[in-house]
């Protein structure tokens, strides 16, 4: 800019700035619905960067969501996207992947959707080691419906349906997933954006059932009711209370309301992927190569 004196109020034309993740988003649908301080948008930013890092042809990437705040992710990503029913994103993704194994299929949803109502499907997809990538945004409550208790809500938390505090034991997702047979399991928080981006990149490249849990604040419904401050305070909490332990025993990754959070890459295993296993099995049975001809339309 020149040193010429400008009239007060003159509009300075700056070149339009673009965020590098914009091509991965449906910008016409922004602003999004998520609350100030919510971490879901942060996870989407990491996901877009992971897509860039993984170097995938994004025409061949599909995102499947269930219902809930995180279930809205499908609507904002500039990919083939499916907003399915509550808890059933994984079985929908199973059909999508089996009919066209060329697709990279990502399930992006919340803890209530994936681990409570959809818990059975989570277990069985991990057991099969089908090559789908599950990103579970864990905000510790059912947020979309007003902050009710979830299977993931830490003990002694106040929620809309537990006004006197929760007393049910809390589901430890990495442990559940490891027991069920997932071959990639990591957990980070929305404070750990670089680590999260890296974990998502690894999950996209991993052959087999991959599970990335992301702890994310719900300042409106969880933090507020539990006097845990706003989104920023939660970031500070994540920073101060996270302990990175790669390869940690998933028996030790349980979450409590105000205790430390074990983060890191817990499980990376090689195990025959479902479609590979099916192909090998039927090739042996048929005495000739089994060829997928599921797409007849």
């Amino acid at each position: 800019m020149s040193n010429a004196v400008m009239e007060p109020g003159t509009l300075v034309q700056e070149p339009e700035a673009h965020n590098p993740v914009e091509p991965f988003l449906r910008m016409e649908r922004i602003p999004h619905i998520w609350c100030p301080g919510c971490g879901i948008g942060t996870t989407v930013n990491c996901f877009a960067r992971a897509l860039m890092n993984a170097g995938l042809n994004t025409d061949k990437v599909a995102v499947v969501s269930g219902i809930g705040c995180s279930g809205r992710v499908a609507g904002y990503v500039n990919l083939d996207s499916f907003h399915t029913t509550h808890g059933r994103a994984i079985p929908f993704a199973t059909g999508l992947k089996l009919a066209n194994p060329e697709l990279t299929v990502v399930v992006y949803s919340g803890d209530g959707d994936l681990a409570s109502i959809g818990g059975n499907h989570l277990i069985h997809a991990a057991r099969r080691n089908l090559d789908i990538k599950v990103i579970c945004v864990n905000n510790l409550v059912y947020a979309m419906t007003g902050g009710q208790t979830a299977a993931t809500t830490p003990v002694s938390s106040t929620t809309a349906t537990s006004p006197y505090g929760t007393f049910e034991p809390t589901l430890n997702l990495p442990q559940l997933l490891e027991a069920a047979g997932a071959t990639y399991i990591a957990r980070w928080t929305t404070y750990h954006v670089k680590q999260l981006e890296k974990a998502m990149t690894e999950a996209l490249k991993h052959k087999g059932f991959s599970f990335v849990e992301v702890l994310s604040p719900c300042p409106t419904l969880f933090q507020r009711r539990n006097h845990l401050g706003d989104g920023l305070a939660t970031m500070k909490f994540y920073k101060e209370h996270s302990q990175t332990k790669h390869g940690a025993s998933t028996a030790d990754t349980g979450l409590t309301k105000e205790g430390d959070i074990v983060v890191g890459k817990f499980v990376v295993k090689e195990r025959e992927e479902y479609i590979e296993g099916m192909t090998r099995h039927f090739t042996e049975h048929l005495g000739r190569p089994f060829e997928f001809k599921v797409r007849t339309c």
Binding site: F92, G95, K97, L98, A99, L103, R295, T296
Partner: peptide, 10 residues
């Protein structure tokens, strides 16, 4: 719903 995922893939 698995069958519906398959339909959308062809």
């Amino acid at each position: 719903i698995t069958l519906q995922g398959a339909v959308w893939a062809g």
